[in-house]
Design a protein around this nucleic acid. Structure first.
Lengths: 219, 219
DNA sequence: GAGTAGAATATTGGATACAATATGCAATAT
DNA sequence: ATATTGCATATTGTATCCAATATTCTACTC
């Protein structure tokens, strides 16, 4: 036998595909706050029945990305400035620990991947890509860590605020500063200085929070 | 008009009821690790069709309480000792911040509620109730905090390890020590000493982790 | 014209029916 | 006896249909 092994049981079901697409649309702001998610409309778009759509919406609700009311349906969740700030505080607590753990586990490969992501972010020109590349950099930085639960939770936290990060990057012209901070974190990692990398990550996140609150004083 | 106001749109749907019951059963260990969740069987038990059951299982999966494989179904998720330890580390990072925030916001009422929960825990005799009362105490302690996201995430983390906490309380005869630590935290809150309350919470959680690892060296 | 009752429509929640896949067992071949 | 194939059953994934509720529109009253 000489066939490439593909685990066919890992193939995506309709409800998983719908979930991923809706999640992406919400995170990236293609679906705006408060916008209702009509089951039939979504089912039409993906050419399925409403059943997979409903399961996808259940999962989104569990993640806090939508809010549902019985017999009224789901709407895209929104955050007050206070709530957004709290999630940034949360990230500022969690993510430095991930970076600290990751630093000691980084290989040449993972450092190179992080550097590539960092460079890609710095070279990016269209605002729409900023969010994705910013996220890609953080993912590359965190992935060597063994703290799988921390990483999972931090991703969920990022999902909740990513749209605001994007908006803030655009409105505050924050790309330059974010870029500098990324390279600073990366260099601390390269030097194997876990404490410095963690501290820089913390101030990076706190800075993003402050900038956000300046630009959206009362979201 | 003189009627008690009940928001009827908040009434539980079948899928919500099934979700809550399954969640409870998993947390409390009534469903054991690896045990498969048969949709039809569960549907029969709750006298519904499989549709609400499936939505409930989707949500459980999103919380990490079950693992599903396409066309094979869902089984109750299990944790390795490493994974459980990581979740305790996570709690040890988050929950002190909640207590710190809660301490400054505690009223006489909330302090009394926490004290009642603490006393109830200390008076408890049946192992099955320990977990619930332990959880109730922590909930009473945290609820004055304004950090809603922190609280939500910490509850999800507790859900993942609660069955181990219970087992550990039984096997290590840890009730006495847990009880002392609870009162210590409570007293720090009463004294308005947020830093002390946070520190005591941290060591309380770290102690539970150490005890767990001693009794389940390789779960 | 404002406001209300009631029908008509839209939308969600759930039940049933069917399709796709997995699992267990018997029959057969080696 | 062991391994392999084909079939029967079990289970999950999805589509379709019905019921319950929300929303909109219309007719009517004042």
């Amino acid at each position: 036998m000489n066939l490439k092994s593909i685990d066919i049981s890992e193939m995506a079901s309709a409800s998983t595909i719908v979930f991923d697409m809706l999640r992406k649309a919400i995170i990236e702001g293609d679906l705006t706050e408060g916008e209702p998610l009509r089951q039939e409309e979504i089912a039409r778009i993906f050419n399925t029945s409403r059943i997979p759509v409903r399961e996808a919406i259940s999962r989104l609700q569990e993640q806090g990305l939508v809010k549902t009311q019985r017999y009224k349906g789901a709407v895209v969740a929104s955050l007050s400035a206070t709530e957004a700030a709290e999630i940034f505080d949360f990230r500022a607590l969690i993510e430095p620990e991930i970076v600290r753990d990751a630093t000691s586990r980084m290989t040449d490969d993972s450092l190179l991947a992080a550097e590539r992501a960092c460079i890609a972010f710095s070279a990016c020109t269209t605002p729409m890509d900023w969010g994705n590349l910013n996220r890609a950099f953080h993912a590359a930085l965190y992935s060597p860590s063994a703290l799988k639960y921390f990483i999972e939770v931090s991703h969920k936290a990022m999902d909740r605020v990513e749209r605001y990060v994007r908006a803030q990057l655009v409105m505050s012209n924050g790309m330059g500063r974010a870029n500098e901070e990324h390279f600073a974190i990366l260099n601390a990692c390269k030097a194997g200085n876990a404490d410095a990398a963690a501290a820089l990550t913390k101030s990076h996140i706190c800075g993003a929070k402050d900038s956000l609150l300046r630009y959206f004083p009362k979201v």
